[in-house]
Amino acid sequence: MTTTTTTTPTPSRMRPLVALANAEYLQFRRNRTLMFMGTVFPIAIPLLPYVIGRRTGGSTPELAATALEMVAYITVVFVQYYSVLSMITTRRGEGVLKRLRTGEAADWQIKTAPAVPGALLTFAGAAVVAAVVYSTGAPAPVNVLAMVLGLAGGVVVFTLLALLTAAYTKNAEAAQITSLPVIALATAGLGSLRAVFPDNIAQVLDWTPFAAVSDLVAIGALGRPLSAPDADAVGFAASFGELGRPVATLVVWTVLTLVVVQRSFRWDDRG
């Protein structure tokens, strides 16, 4: 067979992603459950213990770090991971993924678009909680960059974990079950929980994705991980030396999940 070379108009590379993400946002906005989970839930849950704790012990750095860790946990696990998993399985069941693949959007754009509303709400929710925390007397954070890095890394890894989970999730209802291992693993990565685990288990959990997010957020807010209550808090410059393991953890998980997603992702329920 012959091969011909042709030129076709080249639109902006990001234009399809913007169009798809906008459509995803419109659908997200019309889903009341997702909107509640994406707005009220991640702001109210972290602020409630913060307000109560502040009344009794004042705005300590630990209290601020715990509130910010909680907002990171709720947003990357429930707003990002769970909503992307739910949206991907629903779109696949409706044939939308296969239909979009017949068009000009690249595969990565079709997979990424459902992650955009959750990612925006993650950063918006974190910004609101941080604004409340730091405007009500909490000491200034040690390293804001570490906090942003933790949140951004969490969004990326948990989006990939959602795409991976979708490969063995039949529909949105089944996602309630298939999501449990990732949710459990993320919960075990909370700093306060790792602090009470035996050392050998805690050391393994340190290498899980949410533990890395938690550590980056806590180092940024407090100067030490919440899982190490006895450690000395470090300053801005020294905090960069503490970022190695959590950043490496996020990089390793990103690469691993990316490879598995590339091989296992299903565009169509038919297979």
């Binding site: 659908q27 409706e94 939308v96 068009g103």
Partner: peptide
């Protein structure tokens, strides 16, 4: 199938149009 149920006709077509060169 293949059409997002919660979008209007125009929104669906605008989305698709955004992917065309």
């Amino acid at each position: 199938g293949g059409l997002p149920a919660e979008l209007t006709v125009t929104e669906t077509l605008e989305m698709w149009r955004g992917t065309c060169s």
